[in-house]
Nucleic acid binder design. Structure first.
Lengths: 260, 260
DNA sequence: CTATGCGATCTGTGATCACAGATGTTCTAT
DNA sequence: ATAGAACATCTGTGATCACAGATCGCATAG
């Protein structure tokens, strides 16, 4: 009993791209090393590793459930981005910040991120300002609740909303690298007494940035953004215990530090 | 016939560190991947690879006489630094510059390198100014001789002498990354008609930068440095043929392009 | 002529292993 | 007590291989 395919009709026709899209979703094509990289990057941002901590390929591979290769590649990438440092004896550590490096990074960030704020002010929209105010409100609530993870996240979300509005992909990459440098040390200070008050002052500065963007005042947006960074750095410089690269002792508990 | 060691005297005593230093020199402890990285980096700076060129691990390993591993690590590092780009199909290419990216990189460089010039002006010495003038003289002679490699090198030496004088290691790393982005495309234009005249104008701007540093005029140093970058970019934008990522056709011979 | 399937080839990725350098501990000689 | 040697361990590096995805060329069907 032969049935002609033609008699079955369009049921066997090829599906159009749009029809196919409705039936299946794109799968994750990321490589293992990409995923390892993201996990390590998140861990650094969230202060799960402290400045001076040593990371080894094998221990991380065991913990992540992979072979050493993707971990090695991810770690080398973070070394290239200066988020990790490889010492002369070849071990890889989370870099500690010396007061000098901190000062330098702060100044660079004021220049680079200030420029991004300037660009954002020239390009900003009412929708952006609404978004910034919503983020800042979430940030304020996190401070009220003394929720350190939410505070760090809120501050970061505010800043990166501004920087995305700058519409400068290459600049964003530089800024991300700068933030990767500060992430661990900043997160390590999130429980220091007085950091809540520091963050609370940041809510007002964020509003100042937002208003400047609203008014298309590029110079004021730049100034306020730089002020935000500098004020946090000044607090940080007074409160952070600068230690040697191998030391992870002396952790103090208390309220929350802030992103520089 | 037993001879007491003690009778031989100080000939068998341990040498002090300083004595040892006089006898032997430090050996090169760099890894193979470091050396591969440097070679690739130099090749990119010198325009030995054109924008859009594909680089494969195995062909490079064969050419360099190594196994694929160090090449792979070096290439991944250059990808992390954006000197190479890895496409969705995973091949790795020398990135081409679109007009938009060029514009963005130029603006970032004006901000970042301008800031470095500002710092250099605050820290500069008479010795630095002598050095800068000597480099600029060599640059002028290279232009006179229409020696494209020496022109590129002279321009780079001038700029980096300024940036070193800024005394900001972290900033220098960012600047190096920015230059790595421009290297191949700039070197690809070194033989375009009119580039000599462009470079010749740069000699005067370099002197303007040097004078500003000499007078400790940070704002003028910043302005002149940014002017240097912007003028070169304007010329470049008028003269560079922006091509797709896969194309390396259309190479034109003639005088020399300039580093942006 | 166009679309699809198949096989070959190329490419990067991940796994595994051995090697080499650095470091710490223990032992021995002075 | 101190210095040096030997050994064990840890760490990253380099080599090699297999795997998996992407691409291309060719053949076949409609």
């Amino acid at each position: 009993m032969a049935v002609s395919v033609a008699s079955i009709g369009p049921a066997l026709a090829s599906l159009r791209d749009s029809e196919m899209d409705e039936r299946v979703r794109q799968v994750d094509v990321s490589t293992l090393q990409d995923r390892v990289y993201q996990e390590l990057r998140n861990a650094l941002y969230q202060g799960r590793f402290l400045p001076g901590d040593q990371l080894t390929i094998r221990s991380l591979a065991r913990a992540l459930g992979t072979s050493p290769m993707p971990v090695r590649e991810a770690m080398q990438r973070l070394v290239a981005e200066q988020a990790l440092v490889q010492l002369p004896n070849r071990t890889i550590r989370v870099p500690a910040l010396t007061p000098d490096i901190l000062t330098e990074l702060v100044r660079i960030r004021m220049e680079v991120e200030g420029y991004a704020a300037e660009r954002a002010a020239r390009r900003g929209s009412a929708a952006l300002c609404r978004q910034l105010r919503a983020i800042n409100e979430g940030f304020r609530k996190a401070i009220e609740a003394e929720d350190s993870a939410a505070i760090l996240e809120g501050n970061q979300r505010f800043h990166f909303a501004v920087y995305h509005a700058a519409d400068a992909g290459e600049l964003l990459k530089i800024i991300e690298t700068l933030w990767l440098r500060s992430g661990p040390i900043v997160a390590s200070e999130r429980n220091v007494p007085g950091s809540i008050a520091m963050f609370a002052r940041g809510v007002g500065v964020h509003e100042r940035i937002t208003s400047a963007i609203e008014r298309r005042d590029a110079a004021e947006a730049r100034f306020a953004l730089a002020l935000d960074i500098r004020a946090a750095a000044a607090w940080f410089r007074r409160n952070h215990r600068f230690e040697g690269p191998g030391s992870s002792a002396g952790r103090r508990d208390g309220p929350i530090g802030r992103t520089l």
